[in-house]
């Protein structure tokens, strides 16, 4: 199997309201796909459905070649939830949160083996939080907390990494940092699905863009150029007038 994610006619309803509607999504192994769309377009719900956190009302969903219902290779999955969940009010150091990224690989009642500790340290280094590993997560800034969540997912050395708005509230410098962190993973063959508001410095990594609108896929193809993306996203940049954008449709 060469498909990392395969969704056919996927539907998700939250409290009776259809949020994801008739979505077909296929991500090949090693591909980097960005999921774009305005607020409320169903991006996060789609991703939560893929992670098994909300149930699908209908549709055929496969993860890494296995039907989702039977999927149990959790250690191959990395998930970075939306900003804010790193600091849930529970006392925890950066190291403790990042170490929980090895949970799906670790055995019960035994201390963390050396290999796992090495993976945790590598993940901390990748997001430049090695010096702050013994600090409380609650005392970090929003951007740093986001990097803690990214490190937690990286620590699991996943084959399929799903990031939900990793750049929300993160400044340009750290957005460049995230791109640099993901590049070696992508080069070693990992599959990445990113929920994004705008592609920013990650654009150069992205192979394909899927745009959701009101829960449906309205575009699926090559990433748009910077200019057309600007126009696509911000309505006040009217100076970039073009005949057509690679995205085909109108503004979101």
């Amino acid at each position: 199997m060469t498909t990392a994610i395969a969704v056919r006619d996927g539907n998700i309803a939250l409290g009776g309201r259809p949020v994801v509607r008739g979505v077909d999504l296929s991500v090949r192994r090693g591909e980097v796909v960005a999921l774009l769309g305005s607020n409320g377009s169903g991006k996060t719900t789609l991703v939560r459905g893929l992670m098994g956190l909300v149930p699908w009302s209908s549709g055929d969903v496969q993860l890494l070649g296995t039907p989702q219902r039977r999927f149990n290779e959790w250690h191959r999955l990395g998930y970075v939830p939306q900003e804010g969940s790193a600091n849930s009010g529970i006392p925890a150091t950066v190291l403790e949160v990042v170490s929980s990224g090895r949970l799906s690989r670790r055995r019960l009642l035994l201390p963390l083996p050396r290999r796992d500790r090495d993976a945790v340290r590598a993940a901390l280094r990748a997001v430049e939080l090695e010096d702050q590993q013994h600090d409380a997560v609650s005392q970090l800034s929003g951007g740093q907390q986001q990097r803690v969540l990214i490190a937690r997912a990286l620590a699991g050395e996943p084959d399929l990494l799903v990031l939900d708005e990793p750049n929300a509230g993160v400044d340009r410098h750290n957005q460049v940092g995230l791109a640099a962190t993901l590049r070696p993973m992508v080069e070693s063959g990992a599959t990445v699905l990113l929920v994004l508001h705008e592609m920013g410095p990650l654009a150069e990594l992205i192979d394909r863009v899927v745009v959701l609108r009101h829960g449906r896929v309205t575009y699926d193809g090559i990433p748009p150029t910077d200019d057309s993306l600007d126009e696509f996203h911000s309505h006040h940049h009217s100076r970039h007038q073009r005949d057509r954008t690679p995205l085909g449709g109108g503004p979101l």
């Binding site: 939830p81 790193a86 529970i90 670790r106």
Partner: peptide
């Protein structure tokens, strides 16, 4: 104490614990 890593993960981020297969 023995199950602290698992129990901690469930308290700290229940969604993440689910995705980790706990």
């Amino acid at each position: 104490l023995g199950l602290a890593p698992q129990l901690f993960a469930v308290c700290q981020d229940e969604d993440y614990a689910k995705v980790a297969g706990l």
